[in-house]
């Protein structure tokens, strides 16, 4: 595995992506020490809506809270939600896709029709429905809801890949050598579907961050006063012209994080496929 890592580091896109993601993940992780102010502390009437300055590089918001500090803490919340829910959705999606593609027949028909049905329901509607029933959800709850409602696409990608891999002659070779199903799945199928899964995962990161923002805007996601990047953007939306910094800075951070994940995904895809090295 060491060589895979060292090859990864020779990939320029992966390096840049990693740098971006690591920068924000690092800052977010160290928010407690890095952030100049308490993200929920209201610094008084005189400090409301201050444009960027030396004391407040990203300015302050309506309540006189330091935007930079809130961005750092917000990035932490957004990243944690994104990573955990993507992990959950990828795990479910990959398992279902593997089972459907490898077993075929009834298993395939049942799972894929279920997935079709689930995909036919608009995701936002699904989320609104669940969140409406589970009002005041916490971060863990949000992760579960986001994860459980976003694996359908992944399972289809994985299934399609498995179906393609299943027809390859090395699968027949493995069977002819008496290799069991578990080992075939683990050693022959899984490594060959990992590339699209990784790509789906990175794109999923960006998507989840944006969905979380949308939900927060509707008041269904992360609750005030906890900061998340989406929450901040939507809260500042009404003041876009008067105090653009309250929206623009979290927005830029979201974009940079999403770009970072995309670059990493591309780099991953290139290196995981030994043929493109």
């Amino acid at each position: 595995m060491n060589s895979t890592l060292s090859v990864l580091f020779t990939n320029r896109r992966w390096r840049y992506g990693l740098a971006l993601v690591a920068l924000f993940a690092g800052l977010a992780a160290l928010a407690h020490w890095v952030a100049p102010y308490d993200p929920t502390a209201q610094l008084g009437l005189s400090e409301q809506w201050r444009p960027p300055s030396a004391a407040h590089p990203f300015g302050t918001d309506l309540y006189g809270r330091d935007v930079l500090s809130r961005v750092l803490y917000g990035a932490r919340v957004s990243l944690v939600i994104a990573v955990l829910s993507v992990f959950l959705s990828i795990s479910i999606g990959t398992s279902v896709g593997l089972a459907a593609g490898y077993c075929g027949g009834v298993v395939d028909t049942l799972t894929m029709r279920t997935v079709d049905a689930a995909l036919a329901i608009p995701r936002v509607f699904l989320l609104l429905l669940v969140l409406g029933l589970w009002y005041g959800v916490d971060v863990i709850g949000l992760v579960i809801i986001l994860g459980v409602t976003s694996w359908f696409g992944v399972s289809r990608i994985v299934r399609a890949e498995v179906m393609a891999v299943r027809e390859r002659e090395y699968m027949l070779a493995a069977r002819s050598l008496g290799v069991g199903h578990g080992r075939i799945l683990l050693h022959h199928v899984l490594p060959n579907v990992l590339a699209p899964v990784t790509v789906a995962a990175t794109l999923g990161m960006g998507q989840i961050i944006l969905i979380e923002a949308g939900l927060s805007f509707l008041g269904l996601g992360v609750q005030e006063p906890t900061a998340s990047l989406g929450r901040m953007m939507s809260a500042g939306g009404g003041e876009l012209l008067a105090a653009p910094w309250t929206t623009v800075f979290p927005g830029i951070v979201v974009i940079l994080i999403v770009i970072g994940f995309s670059l990493m995904g591309d780099g991953f895809r290139d290196t995981l496929d030994p043929r493109t090295r």
Binding site: R168, Y170, G178, V179, H187, P191, N192, L272, P274
Partner: peptide, 20 residues
């Protein structure tokens, strides 16, 4: 086509030895 592109060739030969 009959060799797994993600498996080193030594591992491909070793696999049946391990399985059996």
């Amino acid at each position: 086509g009959s060799l797994n592109p993600r498996m080193r060739v030594g591992a491909a030969v070793r696999e049946p030895i391990a399985v059996h």
